[in-house]
Amino acid sequence: MSKRRPYVRSMDGWWRRNPYFVEYMIHEGTALFVAAYAGILLAGLVRLAEGEAAWNAWLAALKNPWYVGFHLFALAALAYHSFTWFKIMPRTMPPVIVEGQRLPAWVITGGGLAAAVVASLILLGVVWGMVR
């Protein structure tokens, strides 16, 4: 009779076993802030549809220290999301061949981060231009 009895180890708490996994869980966790921020914007949009008084009430609520505090954390979380999104991009996108050479990882990550900075400045500029 076979003495074989392969032992399957538990996966409980696997993400605590390696710093690499801890970082993974943190950057996945930024999604909670993305969701909450989208929820706040959605609430604002509904208030906008309800009229001026409702909109102004929502706008005033944003000055509440709890909201300001939340947005400070959300800013950090989304910035971290941007950074990790472009950091993993050399692994997630198909290779880019330029003049027979594969584009190195740092160029892809750097290019993505530069694009984010440019897009953000354009957004700020457009907002500024529209309301000035």
Partner: peptide, 9 residues
């Protein structure tokens, strides 16, 4: 796959 990336590491 959730793009953990540790496999390549």
């Amino acid at each position: 796959c959730t793009a953990v990336g540790y496999c390549s590491e």
